[in-house]
Design a protein around this nucleic acid. Structure first.
Lengths: 177, 177
DNA sequence: TTTTTATGTCAGACATGTTGACATATAATG
DNA sequence: CATTATATGTCAACATGTCTGACATAAAAA
């Protein structure tokens, strides 16, 4: 145990490390607040479906799979791997469970029969719906509260946070209409 | 690997489940795009410090601890637990390492001597800085690209995503100036 | 004095991620 | 056709970060 007399108190003062620029420039403080906001928002956002998942014996990985397959019916395993950024072994485990328990359907590609095209069964669609219920409500409420202009800004910034190298491709994948 | 050939597959047709409402109402599609955007943005956002952490033998948990202690010097273990939403056993492991290796300092509270007030050492501050370097650059670039109005919208929506019960308190914690 | 609180610790379990190796079917290429 | 590359699956071992449950200590609060 390092034992040193308590240095500072709770509320804290900022570290002035010389990042404060002219009034309309971006301050380090402003950036850091944006970072923390993202942390808290995401923390609460993903907390919604967790309890429901437990009832199925599933985890967040299952939720992600069900979500993206639901959004992109007919997608290949490779595509899903690229989105999730995990190894095929990791995906394999959850995918196997979801297929065996009848939430996801695999079918051979017609052009390339090595591929396994993924889609939700009716049961899978139900699961996806109920898992995303609270999340959709949360986002919907935040959207309504903040108004259309805020929504635009929110989207713009989030888009800007995505790796530039993949941004365009991802945006194409996101937008369905 | 991220670029697969079959061009007929990727874009994918949406399921028209009759959720499109009047023009200025929030469509289910709009909500779902907001959800995916959050996923991708967060995914890339947290990917930044990962490599650097490996060099220290640390993980994301360490980063979160160093971040929040850096932002809130003198905070108690309880406060940190509430923010991270993990158990004291989970926190215990990473905190122990960070203290033993001289990144974080613990000191007894002066009012309540049961408390262990947490703060960064110089070494810890350095670590925090270099870990958040890329993240701050990422947010900074996105902010600059999108402009001041978008920043306002971004913040408004993220604030709205935080649990209402804790929103006010969290916002107080975030804002240091 | 007794109870509650803040913190720490041990032990065991589970979910999810990793590497590495290898297998199979199919497509693509020389 | 023979060879090579690709898409996928699987086995095994291991790391990390989470959890629950039990128990301990010191100090504050009642």
């Amino acid at each position: 145990m390092s034992d040193i007399k308590n240095p500072d108190r709770l509320p804290v003062r900022p570290e002035l490390d010389g990042s404060d620029k002219s009034p309309d420039d971006l301050s380090d403080e402003e950036i850091r607040e944006g970072i923390e906001l993202l942390f808290y928002a995401y923390r609460d956002f993903i907390s919604d479906p967790d309890e429901m998942l437990k009832e199925y014996g599933f985890g967040r990985a299952h939720h992600r799979v069900v979500h993206f397959v639901g959004r992109n019916p007919g997608m290949t395993v490779s595509e899903l791997l690229a989105i999730l950024r995990i190894t095929k072994q990791s995906l394999g485990r959850v995918l196997k469970q979801l297929v065996e328990q009848g939430f996801i359907l695999q079918s051979s590609g017609s052009l390339d029969r090595r591929q396994r095209l993924l889609s939700l069964t009716d049961k899978g669609r139900e699961l996806e719906q109920s898992l995303s219920d609270l999340q959709r409500k949360r986002v919907s409420d935040a959207y309504r509260l903040a108004g259309p202009d805020a929504i635009k800004g929110y989207r713009k910034i989030l888009e800007g946070l995505i790796n530039t190298s993949e941004r365009e491709e991802i945006l194409k994948t996101i937008k369905k209409r």
